[in-house]
Each structure stands twice: as structure tokens, then as C-alpha cells.
Design a protein around this nucleic acid. Structure first.
Lengths: 212, 212
DNA sequence: TCGGTTTCTGCAACCTGTTCTAATCCGCGA
DNA sequence: TCGCGGATTAGAACAGGTTGCAGAAACCGA
């Protein structure tokens, strides 16, 4: 049970070790399938086969296919936060650091384009039941953006619930995340290239930060 | 035939009158169902029944369910453009006009919340085959944003292919559309209220335009 | 170790988007 | 008017997400 993916991140994991292992096998199988075939490539019957569980068991761990992929991308966002804490963007000004932050995030995500398309579709189609996942992702990104704005190192250990940044910093983070997400959706829809995503981020950052 | 929805907007409609009427009945049925039950409420078997055509016929007019809803929202965007040309936002400064533009657009869309959720999901999940639709929507919004920035009246009749605005104006339009779209997706996912959408637009517009 | 509870399995079933096919219908040019 | 070709229809069929269920397995406290 354990309301899907919110589990490992928010609630105390009431899962036994064997269940944690099962969860991992499921998620790994889903990721592998997504890397090959994107959203449609993740056929739950295949996920079940590849992870050695019954089809119905998937629904004990996740509410839906989307929820499963949301869990995967949420893990990735935690990983990204760690990386950014270890090797923060080291540009001179806030703009350069932000550009680098999003360039690295974009590269990291789209390095596995089919997986990226899969999770983007999952995010876009998810409903309120997965809102917690989304919120977690958002809070991590905000933390990274604020850190990049200030030229600091993002806090990895602080609980996600802890508020961060000034009003203005949070607004900038919000705008940039919206532009990023929406651009990525556009890329996933075939509207433009990955390069266009990075370029839009750069233009947006300049528009927001550079004196006019 | 007629590659789905691009038809009525881009290519010369090679459809006979009876076919145009059929198309209209299909779209109207889909809209009605979406208004009631959102994306999932649009069951193609029901659309076919309600519009009096066979299930297979739907696929002669639209590539997919998403494509169908994209067509509907595209009609709405044309309508919005006309309304904005008739009664443009009449604030003093560019900021006020933009805030009003997006407030009105948001209200118009979310007045039928289930329909809005349906088309948002369709947009987010669409693939390259519907890129033309998306582009059309985007071009219309850009036209409205640029007009609001300048305090002019958007051009309704000019072909959508005609480029518009300065580099900076287009960037602002792009950022605002990304924020708008992404906020709406967040609303559709249950992440926040409609009010939050309008508020984010206001904050973003201030961030972009007001001197600091 | 035992009994009860929870989880997992294997499988069938359901639902809905999508595709396919054969038969029919319709408009239109000859 | 006739006949042809494209459009439409009814219906079946397929695919994959989701659900339900009965029995087997695993776990856990006593």
C-alpha cells in the first residue's frame, strides 16, 4: 500500500525490506522500459514481468502508471539536488549560474530522451492524487534556483517543507520553472529542439535579471 | 481525410458542406462531453453516438482524441483573439493591460473547468502530429501579448504566419505564455487554485516589466 | 511453533482508444 | 440515367490500463 510514491519521500516508509526491494525492482524496470520506448513503452504487463511481480501488485505500490513515473523523476530530482550541492554552478553572476543550472538540468534529463518524454507526459497528465510528488520536485528546484541566484550551495538535508528564499527569489524561481517545464513539454511534443529549451531558459533569465 | 484539425485553419477546406456539418457536430459533441466529464468524459463512442456518426468516422476527421480537443481549443483561441480585438485591455500601462489580458483569458477558459482540464491535458499529451495546432494557438497568443504590450489592437485578419513584434516583445510573450500554460497545468493537476494562476501571471508580469 | 493477518500471485474481466473490414451510401462526371 | 470512387457505417477485433478475486505465501506477535 503506502500511498504510492509519496512514501519514500514524505511518510515514514512502513515497507519491509523485501517490499523496498520489490519497489526498487518495479521502478528500475519501469525506467528501463521508458528509456527504450517512452511513455507507451512502459507497458505495465512488461513492468510486472521484468520486475518479477504480479500485475496487480504494481497497484499496491502505485496508484497509476503516471504515479510510477512520477516517482522515478522525483528520485532524479533528488539526485540533481545532490549533484548541484556537490558541484554548484560556478559562474560569476547570478545569470550565468542560473543558465548553467538549467542547462545541466536539461542535459541530465534529456540525456535519456525517451525516459524524459515519458516522465514529462506523466507529469502533465497527473492529477491531484500525485500532487505531492509534483510539489516535492518543485520545492527542490526552487531550492536550487535560489542557491544559484545567491551563489550559494543548495541545502540537501533540510526538510523540503522548510520555506526558502525571499519573495522576489521565489517568484523568479517560479517563473523559471514554469518556462522550463513548459519548454520541455514543447520539446516532448515535437514543437522544438532541446537546444531551443536551453536557449529559452537563457533568454528568460536575461529578461528577468539583466538591467534594461 | 484532411489532416485532422489543421484543416479549417490552415489548408483550404476541401470538405463538402455535409462534411463540414458533420465536423461541427462531432466537435460540438466532444465539447459538450468535455464540459461535463473532462478528458475522461469524452468517450469517443459517446462522441460518435451524440454526433450521429460511426466510431470509425471520427478518425477520418481527427488523428486522435487529443487532436479533436486541440481543434476545439484552437477555435476558442480564435474567438479570444476576436474578443481582444473588439474590446482590448484598456489599462494605463503595459503591465495592467497584460494582467487584464491573461486574467480574461484565464477566466474565459476556466469558466468551463472540465472542458479546460480536458484541453489542457490534450495539449500536454499531444505529439508532433498536432504541432500545427499548438503553433497556431501560440501565434495568436503572441499577437495578443504584443498588442497589449504596445496598447494596440491585435490584428485579427493577418495570416498567422506573419511574424510580429520585436525580439524583446516576442521573448516576453514567450515567457508569459510558458508561465500561463504551466500554471494552468498545475491548476488542472490540482496543485493550486485558479486564483493562483492569475496571481502568478500578475507577479510574472511585474517581474518582467516593472523597473527594479 | 501456531494462528491470524497481510501481501502477493495468477488470471480473468472490463473499459476505452484505435484499427480493420466488408457492405452500403452518395455525389458527380460521362 | 448509369456507374465509379470516395466516404460512411456497423460491427468486430485488438491493445493496454485498471480492477476484482480466490488461493498461496509471507510475515508477525504470542
Amino acid at each position: 500500500m503506502a500511498s504510492s510514491s509519496s512514501t519514500a519521500e514524505f511518510a515514514a516508509p512502513r515497507l519491509a525490506l523485501s517490499q523496498l526491494r520489490r519497489l526498487r525492482r518495479i521502478v528500475d524496470a519501469a525506467i528501463a522500459l521508458a528509456e527504450t520506448g517512452g511513455f507507451d513503452g512502459v507497458r505495465l504487463r512488461d513492468v510486472a514481468d521484468a520486475s518479477g511481480v504480479a500485475l496487480g501488485t504494481l497497484y499496491k505500490y502505485f496508484r497509476s502508471k503516471e504515479d510510477m513515473l512520477l516517482f522515478a523523476i522525483n528520485e532524479d530530482s533528488a539526485q540533481l539536488l545532490r549533484v548541484m550541492a556537490e558541484r554548484p554552478p560556478r559562474g560569476e553572476g547570478a545569470s550565468e549560474r542560473l543558465v548553467e543550472l538549467f542547462a545541466r538540468a536539461t542535459r541530465g534529463l534529456t540525456r535519456r530522451p525517451n525516459f524524459a518524454r515519458a516522465v514529462l507526459r506523466a507529469i502533465a497528465a497527473s492529477d491531484a492524487s500525485s500532487a505531492v510528488q509534483q510539489a516535492a520536485f518543485h520545492l527542490r528546484m526552487t531550492r536550487m534556483v535560489v542557491a544559484a541566484l545567491r551563489g550559494e550551495v543548495p541545502d540537501v538535508v533540510a526538510p523540503l517543507s522548510e520555506p526558502i528564499g525571499s519573495e522576489r527569489e521565489r517568484r523568479i524561481a517560479l517563473v523559471l520553472q514554469h518556462v522550463w517545464f513548459s519548454s520541455l513539454i514543447g520539446w516532448a511534443s515535437g514543437l522544438h529542439s532541446i537546444g531551443a529549451v536551453t536557449q529559452r531558459m537563457q533568454e528568460s533569465i536575461e529578461l528577468l535579471l539583466e538591467p534594461r
